[in-house]
Structures are given as structure tokens and as C-alpha cells.
Simulated scan of single mutants.
Amino acid sequence: MKIVALQNEAISLLHSLIETPSFSEEEDQTAIRITTWLQHYNIPTQRYKNNIWAQNKMFDSKKPTVLLNSHHDTVKPNKAYTNDPFKAFVKDGKLYGLGSNDAGGCLVSLMALFVYFYDKKDLKYNLIIVASAEEENSGNHGLNSILPKLPEIDFAVVGEPTQMQLAVAEKGLLVVDAYAPGIAGHAAHDNTENAIYNALEDILWIKNYNFPKHSEALGKIKMNVTQIEAGEQHNVVPATCHFVVDIRITDAYTNREVFNFLQANTKSELKARSFRLNSSAIPLNHPIVKAGIALGRNTYGSPTLSDQAVLSCPSLKMGPGDSTRSHSADEFIYMDEIKEGIEIYINLFNKIL
């Protein structure tokens, strides 16, 4: 199929996706549109919850398999929007609408790539496309829920806005609820066990501590206390203070190692919400990375989280659009970014397939 036709039809699909609300856990209608678009090319699809996937026509279980993945859920629009977030329109070469940049442009570009290679013979790799749900909220029924249903994956390309540069590593996420203990009492009396003061000791340690091992691609681990709550009235010293720690973890440590270290150095009771959102990376000498570098793409480490976090195989994050526009008011992606993204994806895979 001609690339220009694919570009136009991919952009048309993105218009439709923008105008179909698809908040995390509510993506059933965009799942239908994605299925219909693929079936237009006579591509059989499978569905679990709101995840849609398909494999190339000449799939051969003896060959290694590449996963192409991006998500079709969105965050909710913020109050600063001046446009209708569910109205797709083009102005000055920009396609506006919620999810246009994160990650609709990436998704339709990967789908165009998949269609381009779908029925080609004698490929070195199998291809599986997955349009996943619940990425924005790291939900239980997203990509992680269908991985056991897929053939073994040798490596993956995850579509997120990177300006078509090569994000060869991505920080993981560990969210920790901390409960600093204290003894309740009247504020007018001496009380040496104020839960807020105990929490402050731990918070200051978290603020000032630097983990000794740094990642070549991702730099340092970043810890931030992002929420805190304690007390019910002004004259009562609280018995507990709850605070939340957001930790962006590099490939120098596992999530469990970081949690255990925090536990050994703080007084608060710590509870991790999940250990499954690990950092990810792909070797610089991997064929897909070498192919990207040969096309003039740059490599870097990404601080933002994606569905890479649930993959155990090597994975590359790459897609059209700019991450700084994600979750912003009046979200947009340039039309030329989508067209260029499809061309670069196809040229990239032509080098390895």
C-alpha cells in the first residue's frame, strides 16, 4: 500500500479517536473504532477488555516477534482548555484535540506501520500490534493483562511522543505511602511524639538523600514527597501523619531494592502501591537501535512512564509528537509529525525486516 494513502487514513482515524471520549477504563468506543479500521484492511483482530491486537498475516512461530504498542486511553481534559477537547480540527498545520499528542499520533502511526508490513512475505520478524487500554492510570486491565495471551515477545517498540528520537531507557515508578507514628495528646501539653515532626525527619532524609549508583542513560533516582495529611483540629497533636513519596527509579536499582533501603532508613511505616512499574532499557547495539541511529535518530533516557514498565523484554520508546505537550490544555500534534513518523517507522523496519 502507498505510504501517502496510509498517512491520510491514519490521520482520519486519529480524528475519529479524538472525537470519541476514551478516559482510562472507559475506552470501549475507541476500541470499536480501532477494530473497524484494522478490519477495513481485512486484518483479523482480537480483544480483551478494551485492548485490541492483531498479528501479521505470515506469522511464523519459529521467528522472533516484535510488539508494536501504544495506548488509546486519555487523561481527563484540564480546566485550562479553550477548545472543545473532543473536537478534532486543524489550524496552522496542527491537529488539535485530547489525546492527539499523547498518544493518538503514535498509535495511528504504528497501526499504519503494521498495515504496511501486514501481508509481506519472508519477514525476519513477526509483528504484533496492540492498542492498549488503561495506560494513563496504570490500570489492571491494560497491556499487562494481555501479555500472557500473546506469543513470546523478543523486543518491543512503544509509541509515545519522543519527536521520533530513540528513548533507549525509561525510568520506573514506585509510589510509597508512608505513615509516621505519634502519640495523640492536647496541644497545650508536652508531647515528644508528634507524628508531624516524625514525618518531617523522614521527609528531610528523603529530600536530601542521593543514591550512590547513577544510570548512564537515566542519571539519578528522583524522590519527591507529593502529598501529606495529618490532624483534625488545631488543639490535638495527631497520632499519625500520612505522606506519599513519588520515586522515579533508574535501571541501576530495582523497585524492591529502593523500597527496602527506604524502609531501613526511615521511622515511618511504608507501604508500596506496586512493584511492577520497573525501569526499562534496550542495549545500544540492538538491531532496532542501530537502525535508528543509521537514520540519524538520537538516543536518550526518558523520565516519563509508559507501558514499557510492564514489559520484561528489551523495549524502545519512540513516536511522533512532543512529550512536553502531553496532558496540556489545547493539546495538539503537527500533521507533518504524523506523516514523518509513519515514514521513519517504515524506513526503520525496512532496515531490520
Score class of each variant (00 low, 15 high):
Leu6Lys: 02
Leu6Met: 11
Glu9Gly: 03
His15Trp: 07
Ser16Arg: 12
Leu17Ser: 06
Ile18Met: 00
Thr20Trp: 01
Ser22Lys: 04
Glu27Leu: 09
Asp28Val: 05
Thr30Arg: 03
Arg33Asn: 01
Thr35Ala: 08
Thr36Arg: 12
Thr36Ser: 06
Leu38His: 01
Gln39Asp: 08
Asn42His: 15
Arg47Val: 09
Lys49Asn: 13
Asn51Lys: 13
Ala54Lys: 03
Met58Cys: 08
Asp60Tyr: 14
Asp60Ile: 13
Lys63Trp: 09
Thr65Trp: 07
Val66Trp: 05
Asn69Arg: 07
Pro77Glu: 06
Asn78Gln: 11
Ala80His: 14
Ala80Gly: 04
Asn83Ser: 10
Lys91Cys: 06
Lys91Ser: 13
Tyr96Thr: 02
Ser100Ala: 15
Asn101Met: 02
Asp102Ile: 00
Asp102Cys: 04
Leu113Tyr: 06
Val115Arg: 00
Phe117Gly: 01
Lys120Gly: 06
Lys120Trp: 12
Asp122His: 05
Leu127Cys: 05
Leu127His: 11
Ser132Asp: 10
Ser138Pro: 05
Gly139Thr: 12
His141Glu: 15
His141Met: 12
Gly142Lys: 12
Ser145Ala: 15
Leu150Asp: 02
Phe155Asn: 06
Thr162Gln: 01
Leu173Ala: 12
Val176Cys: 10
Ala178Lys: 02
Ile183Trp: 09
Ala184Met: 10
Gly185Pro: 10
Ala187Lys: 11
Ala187Gln: 10
Ala188Arg: 07
Asn191Asp: 14
Tyr197Trp: 04
Asn208His: 14
Tyr209Gln: 12
Pro212His: 09
His214Lys: 15
Leu218Tyr: 12
Gly219Met: 08
Ile221Cys: 02
Met223Phe: 06
Gln227Ser: 07
Ile228Pro: 02
Ala230Tyr: 11
Glu232Ile: 15
His234Val: 11
Val237Leu: 09
Thr240Val: 15
His242Cys: 09
Ile247Arg: 08
Ile247His: 05
Asn255His: 10
Phe261Cys: 12
Ser268Gln: 10
Ala272Gly: 03
Ala272Met: 02
Ser279Ala: 15
Ser280Ile: 07
Leu284Gly: 14
Pro287Cys: 13
Ile288Trp: 07
Ile288Gln: 06
Val289Leu: 08
Lys290Asn: 09
Ala291Tyr: 00
Arg297Tyr: 04
Thr299Pro: 04
Tyr300Leu: 13
Gly301Lys: 02
Gln308Lys: 14
Ala309Leu: 11
Thr324His: 07
Ser328Gln: 14
Ala329Ile: 04
Glu331Leu: 05
Ile333Cys: 01
Tyr334Trp: 01
Tyr334Gln: 01
Lys339Cys: 00
Glu340Gly: 04
Ile342Phe: 11
Glu343Asp: 14
Ile344Ser: 05
Ile344Gly: 02
Ile346Thr: 11
Ile346Met: 12
Asn347Tyr: 14
Leu348Ala: 10
Phe349Trp: 05
Lys351Gln: 13
